[in-house]
């Protein structure tokens, strides 16, 4: 058994929240630059230039990239050979979020109750998902997810006999309905399979894959590329002002499912994609 203090988790989460929110990751910046090169629309090019310029200012001045510093989604893979000490794992994560958002001057966007809507004041709690895995390592994948894009996500239950085409249409339609509101160019996370809770979770995990990396399954990789081409023919463009760059990537992940089911979830992520990973 390896002992691991939850204080280390708090410290890690604190740091990841600040880092993710102020330092746009390289894959997104490369993708924005590529989009700028390919963009045909002058309004679209102007928006992309501003986004790239913005990432530079944010990094240099350690300012948040976007004012919506998001809700914090945390995926933890906990090695079975770890014994956690110094308190609760979930509380440690929330404490990390609280410190990161307070000390990092990040916006607090979480309300404690969906109907009474009282702000918690420290952006906690996070949405934490823990999975037990073999080994003695603890991995944290953290994402700060903006509300605007999240609101444009969707799930649909297809028939097991539904065609690829029908599923493609649903995915493209979801991006189309999101339109300018999701801050395009977007990243499209697709979760196929699982059930009512697993499909969206799979879609969210798909967003953790770096832009430019395709699914290791050859057929899925091909589908991802096809979907990206089709989405970028919609004409929505940067911020919906018309243009080529409607999406930067389509990432598909799959999960086993029931013989009577074929759920498909589409999780929309904006270009201000703030994800970080650390292993403890």
């Amino acid at each position: 058994m390896r002992e691991l203090s939850t204080k280390k988790i708090t410290e890690a989460v604190r740091g990841l929240c600040i880092e993710a929110n102020t330092n746009l990751s390289a894959d997104v910046e490369v993708a924005l630059n590529k989009a700028l090169k390919d963009e045909e629309s002058p309004n679209g090019r102007e928006i992309l230039r501003q986004l790239i310029h913005n990432a530079g200012i944010a990094r240099k001045e350690k300012r948040p990239i976007c004012q919506d510093t998001g809700s914090v989604v945390v995926f933890i893979e906990l090695g079975q050979e770890i014994r956690l000490v110094d308190g609760s794992l979930e509380e440690a994560v929330n404490e990390g979020v609280s410190r990161g958002y307070t000390e990092g001057y990040l916006r607090k966007s979480i309300v404690s109750d969906p109907l009474r809507r009282q702000n918690t004041g420290d952006n906690a709690p996070a949405f934490t998902h823990v999975r037990l895995v073999p080994g003695d390592k603890l991995t944290i994948n953290l994402m700060c997810k903006g509300g605007g894009a999240e609101n444009c996500s969707a799930i649909n239950f297809f028939k097991p006999t539904s065609s690829h085409d029908e599923i493609s249409q649903f995915i493209i339609k979801t991006v189309e309905l999101a339109g300018p509101n999701a801050c395009p160019p977007v990243i499209v996370g697709v979760g196929i399979g699982g059930n009512f809770e697993l499909a969206p979770l799979t879609a969210k995990k798909a967003l953790l894959r770096e832009i430019g990396h395709y699914n290791s399954d050859h057929d899925l990789a091909k589908w991802e590329k096809e979907l990206l081409v089709k989405i970028n023919r919609l004409g929505i463009g940067p911020m919906g002002l018309g243009g080529r760059a409607t999406a930067l990537a389509v990432n598909i992940e799959t999960a086993p499912c029931h013989i009577s089911q074929l759920p498909v979830a589409v999780n929309i992520e904006c270009h201000a994609h703030r994800a970080r990973k650390v292993e403890l």
Binding site: Q50, H53, I57, E61, I65, Q67, C183, M239, A272
Partner: peptide, 13 residues
């Protein structure tokens, strides 16, 4: 008017 969502650092300047 539209301003780019996610260009918040630039706009703040």
């Amino acid at each position: 008017f539209t301003v780019p969502g996610g260009a918040a650092a630039l706009l703040a300047k």
